[in-house]
Amino acid sequence: MNLLSDPVGVSHYLVVGAILFTTGVVCMVVKRNALGVLMGIELVLNGANVNFVAFGSPVLRGEQASILGLDGQAMALFVILLAAAEAAVALAITLNFYNNHATVDVDRADDLKG
């Protein structure tokens, strides 16, 4: 299989989506900085977006794309919008946390621990 001369199919996009998703999950798990966790979430959402766009793409799927029609792209749009909203709120929470606790380490957010 020659990647440079063979045409690209949906599978290629799914692989990219899978890698983005996995790195996002790992990022969310590994990072202790609240903003790093936020970046992990962005990566996860983006991986999902890649899949949505690939399944709805007329270029990649030809006539088969009509099964999903515009839904793939519209879903991707909504995901982007909600990600923006989520980022704004999460950032506000992080700043608030920083103002109160003078740190952005999520492991230190344990005030309610018994």
Binding site: V50, V53, S57, A76
Partner: peptide
């Protein structure tokens, strides 16, 4: 990733990604 969207023919989503994300 926005470039990938452009390649998949989803130009609006790609531009949206660049603009908003």
């Amino acid at each position: 990733t926005a470039g990938l969207f452009f390649l998949a023919g989803a130009e609006f989503v790609g531009a949206m990604q660049l603009m908003i994300y």
